[in-house]
Design a protein around this nucleic acid. Structure first.
Length: 489
RNA sequence: GUCCCCAUCGUCCAGCGGUCAGGACGCGGCCCUUUCAAGGCCGAGACUCGGGUUCGAUUCCCGAUGGGGACGCCA
């Protein structure tokens, strides 16, 4: 039997890292076993759902490379894949459950329920629906329906207990007396999550349900529905939640939580996938941490998911991103960088054509100093912009240090004739000049760095000088000397 | 409050009765060095507690404690 798993987000917000990891685990399992990955949009809550959020979630999933075999955009044998377009199925199923005695109409209003709940809780008791409408006579039901009284449909929870073998937690048993007669259909006719999720998972022939830990307590309720329907129960795997540094459920106040934000900050999707895969999951033995997508697919097992919640560690994400950047070809990095450079106004049309080789060298040079794509911007600026803006503090400390101007002027003149103008030769020239003048090379190097890059820190100076090129280096030295009030010799 | 889940370095994991308790991120030091990174080497750092079971428990069982989740006409 081929496995069928699904990711079923509710479009009430962007795809957050927790959802992304759940989707990833589903996807990895499907790709590992050659099954089908279904994407279903759970938008039965009309109030909170929006089409924009659907688009955003789909974009994030695509960015991560988690492609689906059935669902929005690709269709499939069980279309539609939006719950809002499947309402009649739920209504029909609910009617059957009522007819079979597995569910019943409840006429209690929200206000009445609230009052009764508060009364019970004020005495310290635990409230569960008091089943007031559970045994209404057929006559009374007919009368109240005829009178047009609003009602919900509640599931008739039987006595006993329900157990299931969770693929990450093992056997979980829940006594039915802690489960209330939950609502299947709201008074406006819309199904609740409990109903729609089961109906769709049955109809879409899901073999496994891999979802967040927060659904563990829903599972017995849903199994009860499967049984009432006479439908086969899928295997369940509940993956632990992702927490913030304070061990609280990851949320906005912990910083970036949506996949889109990470994309915008310059993270690579492959790094995000690798990081998320290893957050709460382990391939078992071995010290390997960096895995290609194919390796993850080949090694993924649900049993490898740990039972406890995991704290999100942004530093490690950074490290993964750096690892991927280090393994990529400079040309590939330039391609990924293009939108970022364009946004910063630093893209030049010849960077991937006439100056491709040069650009590759520049990227190679700054790469070890970068963790995210956006980190490239300040480092690349001295190479891509003709003018540099000097950092005042760096200027004061190195460029205007005592006695530096005179040496810098001589160095500028020496550079004009150095041949070839490469890192090794310019370095030899600077050191020779320093020797001749009886000074240390350091101050001259630092002053040159500030003049050429505007910054106190940069990659190896002579590599920078060689790649910025003779004309621009000399122009920047002149500009720096001029700004310092040194007249041209 | 009730029910459920979880428990190894600060964090993420390995361990599945006998290990010097291993790796990674982060942190500290050294090397390299013109700065900053990167890289190499070294280091600090954990089995929550109490009972059992056993020749022997980090590992199995029970309890406590701690953390998390769920208790909606949200999903």
């Amino acid at each position: 039997m081929t496995v069928r798993l699904r990711f079923a987000p509710s479009p009430t917000g962007y795809l957050h890292v927790g959802g992304a990891r759940t989707a990833l685990f589903n996807w990895l399992y499907v790709r590992r076993h050659g099954g089908a990955f279904i994407l279903r949009i759970e938008d039965t809550d009309v109030e909170r759902s929006s089409a924009d959020m659907v688009t955003g979630i789909l974009d994030s999933l695509r960015w991560l490379g988690l492609d689906w075999d059935e669902g929005p955009g690709v269709g499939g044998p069980h279309a539609p894949y939006f719950q809002s377009e499947r309402l009649s199925k739920y209504r029909e199923a609910a009617a059957h459950l009522v007819a079979d005695g597995h569910a019943y109409h409840c006429y209690c209003t929200p206000d009445e329920l609230k009052a009764r709940r508060e009364a019970v809780e004020s005495t310290g008791g635990a409230w569960r629906y008091d089943r007031r409408c559970r045994e209404l006579s057929a006559d009374e039901i007919a009368r109240r329906d005829a009178a047009g009284e609003a009602h919900v449909v509640r599931f008739r929870v039987p006595d006993g207990e329900t157990s299931f073998d969770d693929l990450v937690h093992g056997r979980i048993t829940v006594a039915h007396d802690v489960i209330e007669d939950f609502v299947l259909v709201r008074s406006d006719g819309h199904p609740t999550y409990q109903l729609s999720v089961v109906i769709d998972d049955v109809e879409m022939e899901m073999t496994h349900v891999v979802r967040g830990d927060d659904h563990i307590s829903n599972t017995p309720k849903q199994i009860l529905i499967y049984r009432a329907l006479g439908a086969p129960v899928p295997a369940f795997a509940h993956v632990p939640l992702i927490l913030g540094p304070d061990k609280k459920r990851l949320s906005k106040r912990h910083g970036a939580t949506s996949v889109g934000e990470y994309e915008g900050q310059g993270y690579l999707p492959e790094a995000m996938v690798n990081f998320l895969a290893l957050l709460g999951w382990s391939p078992g033995s071995g010290d390997q941490e960096v895995f290609t997508r194919e390796e993850l697919v080949a090694r993924f097992t649900l049993e490898g998911i740990s039972g406890g919640n995991a704290v999100f560690n942004p530093e490690k994400l950074d490290w993964f991103n750096q690892q991927y950047l280090a393994r990529m070809s400079p040309d590939a990095i330039v391609a990924r960088l293009r939108p970022t450079l364009e946004a910063a106004g630093l893209w030049r049309s010849d960077l991937d054509s006439a100056r491709q080789a040069w650009m590759a060298q520049v990227v190679e040079l700054v790469r070890p100093r970068v963790r995210k794509l956006t980190d490239f911007i300040p480092l690349l600026r001295p190479f891509l912009d003709d003018e540099v803006v000097r950092d005042p503090a760096a200027e004061a400390k190195y460029l205007n240090a005592a006695g530096v101007h005179e040496h810098l002027q001589a160095w500028r003149d020496r550079l004009a004739s150095v041949e070839p103008f490469d890192a090794a030769t310019t370095e030899a020239a600077l050191r020779a000049l320093a020797d001749e003048r009886g000074i240390k090379a350091g101050p001259l190097i630092h002053a040159t760095r500030v003049a050429v890059t505007g910054q106190a820190v940069s990659p190896g100076l002579f590599d920078v000088v060689a790649l910025v090129g003779r004309d621009r280096v000399i122009a920047r030295l002149d500009a720096a000397l001029h700004a310092a009030g040194v007249s041209r010799s």
